[in-house]
Design a protein around this nucleic acid. Structure first.
Lengths: 241, 241
DNA sequence: CTCATTTTTTGAGCAGTTGTCAAAAACCCC
DNA sequence: GGGGTTTTTGACAACTGCTCAAAAAATGAG
């Protein structure tokens, strides 16, 4: 737990975090496309040149933000996975984790959406891009492992459907959720009144139809409350200033 | 069928189509972000100024492309809806329509993804933005109406789930599909080997679990073949030059 | 056909952006 | 303090979206 990094390096990391957090705030207000590097430089009280010692391009900054977001997601996913609960509860915890992250702010949708594009990857540091991919992979591995565990615990029996198909199905559902959160006013127009409700219902429907036990005497609201209160915490970055 | 538009206006429309098609081709190669207006101007053999008589901003051009794509989608959806087939076939036809559109080229993912963002809407013509929204709404209405018909035809009975929840569920699945198509090399890494297969399987699973009849003696491959050959045609824009 | 008037097209240039790099400032060790 | 090293800076280069005065084309009346 004691970190032995040289002072200088610690300062650099701290500054990088400052830049990332400030950028996140600015993106929350006006989106990534209207974020200007000069504006960001002014906000963190460093020069543009200094920003570019941390990030090679603006896209590199974007990917860094994506890495942050996805890492946090992987963390929450791990907590859900490790919880001593029924497998069905744990897989539902994955959804709750996503909902909780969505509640931290709408900018993560903008960030992750834009970061998922080859034209961005090309302009980012290879190292950061690799990390993003690795983190995303970590997330899907966790989901996969919950599925595998569910099978070995006897809660789930595969028919014609493969494990990875389940990963894809559950994951697609939440992507659709992200998309709708982004273009917010589409909601009522398309007829979906409560999007959180819609995604939960469909998630449960999918679980049921995969045959994921328990099908009866299982209330997703109780599970949600449990996970929110007892399982899923955020790592709070303490500012020792 | 006889169009009585003045010659001049016809020419303008033709030129606009030329611009849109050329832009589409350039986006296919390098993505929207690396499309340059000057490059596009050169490609269509007009000046930048002329481009800007058609589109107020670059984002306006993007939204126009999105309108094209979504209109084409609505057209195919209508064909699926109007087909004299079982309701389950028709709703499956919606998925096939999306798959067929995806086959026309990967640029539509880039276009629709970027167009689904407020920071783009703000810079586009109100008129074009409205049209895009209307077209998207039309698509979801068609899906909804197939659901309603299925109920009245006795193929579908709603339990706790609302009609709009079904719209959301089916639609989310295809969004996830789009997302994976965009970041292509994620596929094997996440473990999904055949993405088309994965989306079809989950689509059918959802239909089954909504209780959409017929559940037995229904082969999606046969339906797909039927729709591809007999129901879903593209409108071919004939060049009378 | 002529020429004045209107409409359309043009592309050099403006404003605003990302990203660079020589020089200034800060730091470090003697 | 002084010489050398590292870090920061911000003016500037390079490039882009977009404009608008002027050129070119179309129109149409005589």
């Amino acid at each position: 737990m004691t970190n032995k990094l040289p002072r200088r390096e610690r300062q650099l990391i701290e500054r990088e975090n400052l830049i990332l957090e400030t950028a996140r705030g600015l993106i929350r207000e006006n989106g990534f496309l209207s974020l200007k590097m000069s504006q960001l430089a002014e906000a963190v009280e460093y020069s543009v040149g200094t920003l570019y010692t941390h990030f090679e391009t603006k896209e590199d900054l974007l990917v860094s933000l994506a890495v942050q977001s996805i890492s946090q997601r992987a963390n929450l996913f791990e907590k859900a996975q490790e919880a001593k609960r029924k497998s069905r509860d744990r897989i539902y915890g994955i959804l709750i984790a996503r909902l909780m992250l969505a509640e931290t702010g709408p900018e993560i949708f903008d960030i992750e959406r834009l970061a998922a594009s080859p034209s961005v990857w090309k302009r980012a540091t290879q190292e950061r891009y690799q990390k993003m991919v690795a983190m995303e992979q970590r997330c899907s591995e966790i989901v996969l492992s919950i599925i595998v565990d569910a099978i070995s615990e006897g809660d789930l029996a595969l028919g014609s459907v493969r494990e990875t198909d389940i990963v894809f199905g559950l994951w697609s559902l939440t992507i659709g959720f992200h998309r709708l959160m982004l273009s917010f006013d589409d909601l009522s127009r398309v007829g979906v009144l409560d999007i959180n409700e819609a995604v939960k219902i469909n998630y449960c429907i999918l679980l049921d139809s995969y045959g994921w036990q328990p099908l009866k005497d299982w209330d997703h609201n109780t599970v949600e409350k449990d996970f929110r209160e007892n399982v899923l915490f955020f790592k709070i970055t303490v500012d020792t200033s």
